[in-house]
Design a binder for these strands. Structure first.
Lengths: 239, 239
DNA sequence: CGTGTACTTGATACAAGTCAAGAATAGTGG
DNA sequence: CCACTATTCTTGACTTGTATCAAGTACACG
């Protein structure tokens, strides 16, 4: 049996046995969190980073008027706030979108690890760098694509990430996102999310019912979304 | 005389003398790049990261239809593509917005440094994590704020970052951004940038002429933009 | 002193927001 | 197992913010 964290990092690079050993003792005991609860609040100063074993959560920020913007969706296998090791005070919160299982990695242990395992540290660093790449891609779609393409792009991203995590196949996956959540991701009102969702359906690109998503025509959806998976770095990439 | 890179990192944490020594030999010889040239193109696989000694540049992505979206502005003292150490193939390009002076740090040297100086490595890691925080903040303004607030927010961010770099004071600074560039940052057409610029002027919040920007009423501008500087981590924050 | 770049303004079109109401659907308790 | 409730989704009518198209004007520069 191989740890979920080891498995995740192995997607990107090989791990020496002492590196696997170091990782195997990094995570503390699993903890369950209920859907809707705030795993981290903006302004928190966590003393550990949190690994998402199962379930879905999202980074969020709130405006003065109370509007919510989600800035990243986290899927099982993600370190949801590894960056809190370095950026002590959180600039955003993290909300559980479904019931989740999470496991802590103490910052002290991570700092110690960074002194002993340089290559492993770079691999963790890469994880935070990929978060940045995802943010950039979202910026591009927000700034330069219309609502329908944005939604299509999100669907493509989620499918690729879930497939890499072994949680999707045959162009089918499940995410606990309501149309309100989608609006908070895409910077749209729920009403407009519904309209562009209908548009994608009527064009025969997707089905989406409850949490179940089915991509009917991947090629056309990806082309409509101008989706190019390279930013996700799902292929092997030694550091 | 203290190197610009050392100076930059000292803003966030102390450096031991051996760390300063390691940094002092990290950067290669200065190189001049002309305004408008592409320092890095999307898809490049650089073997060094680039430190910006002087001038302004920006990360950009292009859509299929040729629209440009800028995803971050870099000011002197920034490592403009430190993340290329880890994410080998660039997901975006970097364009010089003005004449710039840059200096390379070879990836081989950075990798070696990460094996010998864990604390220093974490400090560099922090730089890339702050990039992510800036991206997130832009996502929030893109998704949930109108054009005028977005422009106001950008002005606040640039002022704070330039002031921290010693390049701005008295609510006054210079940036080589045209209204076309601003549109590419904010996800707007140049025409609309002009209109919201006029709006901020008529409200007595700013003056902006050529590259010269003057903030007439910081408190009101910041409040209008819902600007909160904490995401920039300009205060001391040992890692 | 002419020419190009950046900026400005106006008229009109369109994408997305707002407000409102009703239809599905999923839980929940009797 | 059904009735009640609360979400979530769907649709329509209308408004608003930003884009588009088209002409200018102001400057900087060679």
């Amino acid at each position: 049996m191989i740890g979920a964290l080891v498995q995740k990092l192995l997607r990107r690079d090989d791990l020496a046995s002492d590196e696997r050993e170091a990782l195997s003792v990094l995570l503390g005991p699993d903890r369950r969190v209920a859907a809707g609860s705030l795993i981290i609040k903006p302004g928190d100063r966590p003393t550990h980073s949190t690994f998402l074993v199962s379930g879905f959560c999202a980074r969020y920020s709130l405006t003065v008027s109370g509007d919510r913007q989600l800035t990243e969706i986290n899927v099982p296998g993600d370190f949801i706030d590894l960056h809190s090791l370095l950026m002590k005070q959180m600039d955003h919160g993290i909300v559980a979108l479904s019931d989740c299982v999470v496991a802590p990695a103490q910052h002290d242990d991570l700092r110690r690890l960074s002194g002993r395992h340089a290559h492993l540290t770079r691999l963790l660093w890469l994880e935070t760098v990929i978060d940045g790449a995802i943010h950039r891609q979202w910026l591009v779609t927000m700034g330069r694509q219309n609502a329908a393409s944005r939604l299509a792009h999100l669907i493509c991203e989620l499918y690729m990430r879930l497939e890499a995590a072994g949680l999707a196949q045959d162009h089918r996956f499940a995410v606990p996102l309501t149309q309100v959540d989608l609006g908070d991701i895409l910077g749209l009102t729920p009403v407009h999310v519904n309209r562009v969702m209908m548009e994608l359906r009527h064009q025969g690109l997707i089905e989406w019912k409850g949490p179940q998503v089915l991509i009917l025509d991947w090629a056309q959806l990806a082309s409509f979304a101008e989706f190019d998976e390279t930013y996700l770095r799902l292929r092997r990439d030694p550091v």
